[in-house]
Amino acid sequence: MNAFRLAGDMTHLLSIILLLHKIRAMKSCAGISLRTQELYVIVFVTRYVDLSMKYYSFYNSIMKIVFLGTSISIVWYMRYHKVVKQTYNKDVDTFRHIFLILPCFVLALLINRAFTVIEVLWTFSLYLEAVAILPQLVLLQRSRNIDNLTGNYVFLLGAYRAFYLLNWIYRFFIENHQVRWIPWLSGLLQTAIYADFFYYYIKSWKNREKLKLPA
């Protein structure tokens, strides 16, 4: 474990806690894409299949349980909670996430480190996570006003993978870790997808104005 990865995990955890807090405190999920949240559940389920089989550390296991639990409860709130589900506007959250799931799965079957169930699922989860934010970004572009909590949620979510990029650089040079193209390139793409959001988020923060993404 290094400071970059810890910072990344904490940023990731904070983003999810922030979203869960927004939904529970405001009893609203306005501006949040259910499609993206469902993709994250798929990412965690396929990445943590080895949770019961492989023990790395207490931290690793507890964080996997927390990520699984929080992401599933966010989808539950948005789909089934009697009050929250009224605030979900499915007419604007129209991104067909099957167009992300299938290509990522096919790609994971073709490009992976080993053709085993665990490895292919792990690779699939990395490819899918790289593009999972797209429905949410599309939804933000359609939203006239983005509330601060949602903006902060997306910013923290993008920042966490940027910390992971630093973690991989550290591990490669300091721990002379071997090259790992799949997580590295997926992580690079994932962070790049946030680039324009980061630009508008920082601009709105500097100019103290409402966050607005160009359509």
Partner: peptide, 10 residues
Amino acid sequence: DTETEAHDEL
């Protein structure tokens, strides 16, 4: 072995 080591991250 390096195989499983690759999955030590979240």
